[in-house]
């Protein structure tokens, strides 16, 4: 097994607030798998969606400052849990290959942009660098009895030429991880449909409709929980699940996990370390049911 996995880690703004459990679980999982993370020193916001809707050079400059911070600790390979940060950091590196564009960006920066840094998602390095078979070997508490669907959201794998990971219409990375952890994975047909993204505040109605459709579908295929890899998706589906139920007259009660939270549990980490208590839709019943399966099995053995 490759024991020398070592990356710069860019947490992204939401990790300090609404997606704190994604950050906690990503860090803990990496530690448990001996993957070394080096925090990007004094990182700043990547600009997210709003910046690139204003101007591409502004957006790339905000990202480039962080790429420079990565280079400043002598690293050239950076990972982030958040797909929106990922898309911005990758887009910046990609567009700055063009000299004219790079010059435009450099005009906005203190130091010229370092274009050698490449960025990947935590999910990607777990699958490609660590390997699902190696993850399987580390499972001490299989997710027996958990029926789960994997929801990827719209930008984790798109556009394909830029993201260079998995399949843009039918990604399988999280399905495969969940299967390796012992869960029962039901194919989720709306894997890459949009949840309503950052419209929760200015156009809540749109999120109610789009995320509502995702929950209806999860329910219809018998998924008892969904796993996500995106703070925005998770927040729309979890934090807003009650609002969605009110708006649409539905009665969903579907826990929405970050895939790293379930991975951590299966690796033997505690619920507390995985920030399970941070989820709005309580996973209590599901987690207890899983634990019960375990004890029944142990007794039988």
């Amino acid at each position: 097994m490759n024991t020398s996995l070592n990356y710069a880690y860019y947490p992204g703004c939401s990790s300090t607030g609404t997606s704190i459990e994604y950050d906690m679980s990503s860090r803990a999982v990496c530690a448990a798998l001996d993957i070394k993370l080096n925090d990007v020193p004094d990182w700043s916001c990547c600009g997210s969606t709003p910046a690139h809707t204003v101007d591409h050079s502004l957006s790339s400059a905000l990202s480039a400052r962080n790429l420079n911070q990565v280079a400043s600790i002598g690293m050239d390979s950076c990972i982030t849990p958040c797909p929106s940060c990922l898309a911005n950091l990758k887009t910046a590196t990609h567009r700055m290959e063009d000299e004219a564009f790079r010059n435009k960006v450099n005009k906005l920066l203190d130091k010229p942009a370092d274009t050698r840094v490449s960025t990947k998602s935590v999910l990607q390095i777990l699958v490609e660098d660590y390997g699902i078979e190696n993850i399987r070997k580390k499972v001490v508490r299989p997710l027996k009895g958990l029926v789960v669907g994997a929801y990827y959201g719209c930008i984790l794998n798109r556009p394909a030429e830029l993201m260079q990971f998995d399949d843009s219409e039918h990604p399988m990375a999280m399905d495969n991880i969940m299967e390796a952890l012992g869960a029962t994975v039901v194919p989720f047909p709306l894997k890459v449909e949009c949840c309503g993204a950052s419209f929760g505040i200015p156009r809540k109605d749109v999120v109610m409709r789009l995320s509502g459709k995702l929950l209806d579908t999860a329910h219809a295929i018998g998924a008892k929980a969904l796993v996500t890899a995106c703070p925005l998706c998770q927040m729309n589906l979890d934090m807003r699940q009650n609002q969605i139920n009110h708006a649409n007259g539905s009665h969903h009660n579907i826990p929405i996990f970050y895939f790293t939270q379930l991975l951590g549990l299966a690796l033997g980490l505690t619920e507390k370390e995985m920030g399970m208590n941070k989820l709005c839709v309580s996973p209590r019943t599901l987690l207890d049911a899983m634990a019960n399966e375990e004890t029944i099995k142990e007794k039988a053995a």
């Binding site: 930008i155 798109r158 949009c194 950052s198």
Partner: peptide, 11 residues
């Protein structure tokens, strides 16, 4: 202003 840059069209 309503486009969420979901990249579905591009894909």
């Amino acid at each position: 202003w309503l486009c969420a840059t979901c990249e579905s069209c591009t894909a």
